[in-house]
């Protein structure tokens, strides 16, 4: 027994600082936020607060503004995931057999990922200028020049929730499609060539080859892509902040609403919004983490 502790003891010791740090800064602070969200601390004033149970949550879900932000987030997430998956998969398909200059295409498609969402938001905020016709600016002006004026639109400034949030999703798709391409490309390249050859020898058409042989092999990657994109979208903040500013009801999502609530020093309410965000992410991510860790330990 003593000997076994001597072998694994030092390992546990190495991890101890990390466990303590994350124990406090992740789990401890989450508990603290949760605790705040159960109180009536609606000002910055220090001093004792009263527990009000889940009243703040009840209020949030009975409030048009919060429900609006949730709906915006839902639409944004769908638009973002669908857009990114389409471009990412399409680019991977176009590249996977290898073309001359492949590394150039790959690098260009991927480069927006290296840029901060604030910088890209500054640029896209300017590209998504709502003026049209004579006075058109940004992308609308480009459509004007290319004689594609039917494409001109007010972007996020008018219209339905769908067009509004799809406009916001556009820059995010621009930034992250390359990432999804890289994931799928790695997936395609990881498939043993024998599989393709066997299918071709059997006379499978290209369509059937992809449909029945290659795509099924990619489903684990598609699943992780979904989870990555989903949880990114739930956290999307910088981009909206930079494009529309934080004070637009039309594009407000919970992350932005939380910031606005905090600016008004409503601690309890902004903590409640943050905890709702965490809960949504956790639903998505906990099964994923559990599955990953289990898989890893089997290897």
């Amino acid at each position: 027994m003593h000997g076994r502790i001597r072998t694994w003891g030092p390992g546990a010791l190495v991890l101890l600082p990390t466990v303590l740090l994350l124990g406090y800064f992740v789990y401890g602070l989450i508990a603290w936020s949760f605790n705040t969200s159960l109180t009536d601390r609606h000002t910055a004033r220090k001093g004792p607060a009263n527990y009000v149970g889940f009243e703040n949550y009840g209020n949030l879900f009975g409030e048009d503004r919060f429900l609006n932000s949730l709906k915006n987030l839902g639409v944004l997430t769908v638009a973002f995931i669908v857009g990114t998956l389409i471009f990412g998969l399409l680019w991977a398909l176009l590249l996977e057999k290898g073309v001359p200059g492949e590394s150039i295409f790959r690098s260009v498609y991927l480069f927006p990922m290296a840029i901060s969402m604030i910088a890209s938001g500054v640029v896209w905020g300017w590209l998504l200028n709502p003026s049209q016709g004579e006075d058109a600016r940004g992308l609308n002006r480009l459509f004007e020049i290319l004689h594609l004026s039917f494409l001109e639109n007010p972007w996020w400034t008018a219209g339905s929730r769908w067009t509004t949030m799809a406009s916001i999703a556009m820059p995010a798709v621009w930034q992250l499609s390359g990432y999804i391409m890289a994931l799928f490309l790695a997936g395609f390249r990881g498939i043993p060539p024998e599989l393709r050859e066997a299918a071709r020898v059997d006379g499978a058409s290209e369509f059937k080859l992809y449909r029945y042989v290659l795509f099924p092999q990619l489903s684990p990657i598609a699943l992780s892509a979904l989870i990555i994109l989903g949880h990114m979208s739930l956290k999307l903040f910088d981009l909206i902040y930079a494009i529309t500013g934080p004070n637009q009801f039309r594009t407000e999502v919970p992350a932005i609403y939380m910031w606005n609530t905090l600016l008004r020093s409503d601690m309890a309410k902004s903590a409640a919004i943050a905890i709702v965000m965490l809960a949504v992410v956790a639903v998505l991510v906990i099964p994923y983490v559990a599955y990953t860790v289990r898989q890893e330990s089997e290897e």
């Binding site: 401890g28 989450i30 936020s33 905890i275 991510v285």
Partner: peptide, 11 residues
């Protein structure tokens, strides 16, 4: 994975 908003205030 956590949204950092969930720790920001106490941080």
């Amino acid at each position: 994975f956590i949204p950092y908003q969930a720790v920001m205030l106490p941080l």
